[in-house]
Design a binder for these strands. Sequence first.
RNA 1: UGCCCGAUGGUGUAACUGGCAACACGCUUGAUUUUGAUUCAAGAAAGUCCAGGUUCGAGCCCUGGUCGGGCAACCA
Length: 554
Amino acid sequence: MTEEKSLNFLEEIVEGDLKAGKHASIVTRFPPEPNGYLHLGHAKSICLNFGLALKYGGYTNLRFDDTNPVTEEVEYVESIKNDVQWLGFRWQNELYASDYFDQLFGFAVALIKKGLAYVDDSSSEEIAEMKGTPTQVGRDSVYRSRSIEENLRLFMQMKEGKYKDGEKVLRAKIDMGHVNMLMRDPIIYRIKHAHHHRTGDAWCIYPMYDFAHGQSDAIEKVTHSICTLEFVPHRELYNWLIENLEIYPSRQYEFARLNMTYTLMSKRKLLQLVNEKHVNGWDDPRMPTLSAVRRRGYTPEAIRDFCDKIGVAKRDNLIDISLLEFCVREHLNKISNRRMVVFDPLKVTIVNYPEGKSELLSSENNTEAAEVTHRDVPFSRELYIERDDFMEVPPKKYFRLSPGQMVRLKSAFIIKCEEAVKDSHGNVVELHCSYIPESRSGSDTSGVQVKGVIHWVSKQHAIPVEVRLYDRLFKVEDLSAVEGDFRDYLNPDSLRVLPQAWAEPALKKASVGEHFQFLRMGYFCLDPDFNGDKLVFNRTVTLRDMWAKEVKKG
RNA sequence: UGCCCGAUGGUGUAACUGGCAACACGCUUGAUUUUGAUUCAAGAAAGUCCAGGUUCGAGCCCUGGUCGGGCAACCA
C-alpha cells in the first residue's frame, strides 16, 4: 500500500478515541428492526459498522431492535441474518433488545424512583396536542405530578395487564418547554397486548425505541453507536437517559443514509410494493433488497466495493446507480464464464457447409481469468444468430451482417451473407451465408479481416432457456423530489421475459450461484426457483454498450 | 417566529487540519481487441453557496446571510 486512503469522519473519531485512550478497543452494533428485508441502504450501515470494528480491532454485535411486536416477525429475523452473512460479515453476538426487557423494565422503575418518569392516562391525541409544535412549547399533563408511589403502583399494574392498549403510558419527566420535541416528556413505555416473536405473551408493555436502543447499547458496552441522520435529535435524549440511568456511556454518531437514483430505499414503501403485488415478493430481482440483488446476481464483493466507493459523510446524497452497476460489472468481468445465447433468433444456413456434419469448436471460458480454460461449442450447417446482428440496409459504421458483408462467428468461422430470404410480407426469415473454411478460429489462414464478431448457436444443439431482463423499477431519477404517489412512477417495462431464447449446450450444467457473461448480452445467473427442465436466467446487468450510444446519437 | 444538520466538477468522496482543488463513476476522443465488452491513453468539466472579516496566504478559521434537509408516530 503506497498511498493511504484518507479517513472518513467516523474513522477519525474512532482513531481519535483510541489514540486518546478512551477505549482499548471498539464495539459496534448493527441494529435492524425485524419488520422487513434488508436493502442496499442497510448494506452501507453493515459495511460501516462491521468495517470499523474489523479495521480497528473490535467486534460487532447483531442486535435486533424488536420492541414493537405488531410489525416484527421471525421470517424477517432469518432473512436479516442470512443477508448479513451473505455480505460477508460475522457478528460477535446475536442479540435482541427483547433479551433486555427485564433490565429495561428495571431502568424504568429506577427512573420513576428518581422522580424522572410518570404514568400518564392521557389519550394519544391529548398527548400529541399537549406536545406543542417545533415553534411552540408544550404543556404539562395533569398526571405529571403524580407521586412516585402512585407511579410505581400504576406502572406495575400496566405490566400486569390491568389496562387496555393505549389506556396509559409511561413518560420520562424532562421538560415540556424544551426546544427539542423529543425532550418534551417522551413516552418510554406503552401497552400492547400483542404476541412477541421471542417473548411470546410474557409482556404487555413494551419500551419505545428511545428507551431501548441506547440502553441496549449501554448493556452491550457499545462504544460507537452509529446511526443515520434522522436520529440526530434523538441524541440529546440518548445522552439524558445514559446520564440519569447512570449506565455505560455509549456515544451516538450519525451519517447520511444512502439514496440512489431510480431506487426506493424505504422499508415501508418496499413492503407496500410487495403487499400490493407490484413486484413478486421481497426478493424480486428488481427490488433493492439484498435478497433481491443476490437473486439477480450481484455479488457481495461488488456491494462491499460499492459501499467503500460511495464514502461516508453527513450531507444528503443521491448516488448514481451507474456506480453500483460499474462495481458489479467490474467484479463479474473477472469471475464470469462466457457463454453464447441468442435471444431473438434469426436462422442462418451455411450453404457451403456439408449437411449433417457437425464439429466441436473450442472457446475460452474467460480470458480475464488467471488461468484460461476452454469449453467445446458445437457448430453445424444451421445456426441462429441475433436478429439485431443483421440489417438489410445498414447505417454507417455498422459492422455486423448485411447483404454481401462478412462477420466472424465468435470462436468459429468468418461468414458472408449471400442472401436474405424473405416471407410473403417481406420480412427476413433466414439468411443464406457462405463460410470461409480457412478462417477457423485459432488457425485462420484466410487472411480476411473483419470488424464484426457476433455470437451464435448451432440450431440442432441449442437448448431453449427463459431469460428475464430487468430494468429500473422506477422511471424517475429522484424519488424524493417527486410529487404525488411514488407508485405512479413505476416503470411498466421493468421486467421483460423472453420465454424462449437459445443457449449453447454448455449451459445445461449451469448451477445456482454461478455467474455467466452471455457474450455481448450482459451478465446472467440462474434463477433459484426455475421449475421443470427449462432453465431460467436473470440478467444481472448489461454490458457497457458504446454502439447503443452511437445509434442513439443517430 | 424556533431548534438541529449540511453546502467542493453532472454524481459521490478527498484535500497531509491555513499553503493556490485530487480520486472514482459518468461524459468525450483515440489505440488495442475473435465480445461495439475488457484493457490502455488523452480530454472536457468545479475555483469550493453568497457577502464581509482574520491572515503574507482561506475550500478549511470568525460574523452575517442564502439555499437544501430534518424536528410535532403509544414506529424504528
